[in-house]
């Protein structure tokens, strides 16, 4: 049972880490907390649904969904956030809320207020026996996909020119522009990456909940925000650490609390976060430039 709960915790933490990274990448460069990140997930979910309904096999449908999330993120930047470039953090935040609410209403009225079921293939509901334990294929796949996505992002940031430019942008955007890197491109790529991460997280999220609905993005973006704050706003490794910690705390409390205390789980998790922030006010792994947060 302990082993199973550990796998549960890593699996959930991995999804939170992907979500938090999506927020952190955009924040580290533009100072924007994109609360419409959740709607990118919803959009990817609907793209997955549409692709499956058109008869696509699961894998191409999943690629379509991630691509839809990425394109939508770039479009969102171009339409909503580029005109707001240089605006105050508050204006950006409010813009992201506006985009988020607008998309939710569009999904509700153009698609359906009701959730749409997405049937997962049978093999995903299978179990792998390990000794006397059985571990679900779903959580294992979720861990594998999260790990691959994190590794892929790390390689991109470390090994490519654009990756280096993005890391530089997170530290000092103005200097980066002085050396001739296009701001529009760096920011567009940041949104593209956040869209890809939202798309992947959306697939894992849907694999767990078997349906997609217009409000789907609200909880994940909230969790991602909490994770980025614990990890240190604007710090990418912090976002991963924060996501993992949040996942572990949630699963541990769900597993350990007696039924009479179970309703206080979220309150306890948030109290734990306050404690973390009291000890480390800038988060677990603070960003290099903490002035923004």
């Amino acid at each position: 049972m302990l082993l199973q709960q550990v796998i549960n915790a890593i699996s959930l933490g991995g999804i939170y880490a992907l979500l938090a990274l999506g927020l952190a990448i955009v924040f580290s460069i533009t100072g924007l907390i994109n609360f419409a990140h959740g709607e990118l997930m919803t959009l990817s979910g609907y793209a997955l649904l549409a692709a499956l309904m058109m008869g696509m096999p699961l894998l191409p449908a999943a690629v379509t969904a991630v691509a839809a999330g990425a394109l939508a993120a770039v479009a969102m930047e171009r339409v909503a956030f580029r005109p707001m470039r240089g605006a105050s953090v508050t204006s950006l935040l409010l813009t992201s809320f506006a985009v988020s609410n607008l998309l939710k209403v569009v999904f509700q009225n153009a698609i359906s207020a009701r959730g749409k079921p997405i049937a997962m293939p049978d093999w995903m509901a299978g179990v792998v026996p390990i000794g006397s334990f059985t571990i679900g294929v779903g959580p294992l796949m979720s861990i594998a996909v999260s790990a691959l996505a994190l590794l892929g992002l790390e390689l991109f940031l470390r090994r490519t020119v654009m990756g280096a430019a993005m890391r530089a942008a997170a530290q000092d955007f103005n200097t980066l522009r002085l050396v001739g890197i296009s701001a529009n491109r760096v920011i567009a790529v940041a949104f593209l990456l956040s869209g890809v991460l939202a798309g992947i997280a959306s697939l894992l999220w849907i694999a767990q909940r078997a349906s997609v609905d217009p409000m789907m993005g609200f909880v994940p973006v909230l969790k991602a925000f909490i994770a980025t704050v614990i990890g240190g706003l604007g710090s990418l490794s912090g976002a991963v650490a924060g996501g993992m910690l949040l996942g572990v705390m949630e699963v541990a409390l769900q597993a350990l609390l007696p039924p009479s205390l179970a309703p206080y789980r979220d309150a306890l998790v948030l109290s734990g976060i306050i404690v973390v922030l009291l000890v480390r006010p800038n988060g677990l792994i603070p960003a290099v430039d903490t002035a923004r947060s």
């Binding site: 199973q4 767990q208 609200f218 909880v219 699963v251 597993a255």
Partner: peptide
């Protein structure tokens, strides 16, 4: 035999499922 508690909108039921299995 027992009661499990969840938060509405909670994404992850794995801990409850594990408790039921156990």
């Amino acid at each position: 035999l027992g009661t499990g508690s969840f938060t509405m909108g909670q994404p992850d039921f794995s801990a409850i499922v594990t408790a039921i299995k156990a």
